[in-house]
Design a binder for these strands. Structure first.
Length: 115
DNA sequence: GGTCTGACTAAAT
DNA sequence: GATTTAGCCAGAC
């Protein structure tokens, strides 16, 4: 029994958190990772999304700079920004315009919108 | 089974 | 302030 994992299922946790992202909002891998207690494992967040279902709005997750770095992992590299624009998020050159404005922090927004 | 790379981030230079 | 290094963990070779 060498299973000392207080983090439970990191995968499921990431998917669940990302799934809670409201429409027209975006977040970063680090934000989700930090919310799960693995701020330094931001890479694993992206990896988790790699095996995520289509029910998970992975297109709402971008890097710290607001760049659609993960667009290549989608069915089509344009699907990501296409969906974002479809939700009201302005994307320019694979980058979110006014990223901070659309940024959605699970550590904060989650508690504020728990009505 | 060691090495490299990757949907990242932060700190150091 | 842009570039580089290091840390993270997991999958592919």
């Amino acid at each position: 029994m060498s299973e000392s994992r207080p983090e439970r299922d990191f995968y499921a946790d990431v998917l669940e958190t990302v799934r809670e992202i409201p429409r027209g909002r975006v977040t970063s891998y680090g934000a989700v990772a930090k919310y799960l207690g693995a701020a330094r494992s931001s890479r694993m967040v992206g990896w988790a999304l790699n095996g995520a279902s289509e029910q998970v709005p992975a297109h709402r997750v971008v890097n710290r700079q607001g760049e659609l770095t993960g667009r290549s992992a989608f069915s089509t590299p344009d699907l990501m920004e296409e969906r974002l624009e479809s939700e009201g998020v302005r994307v320019k050159n694979h980058r979110i315009v006014d990223f901070a404005r659309y940024f959605w922090d699970p550590c904060v927004e989650m508690e504020v919108d728990l009505s």
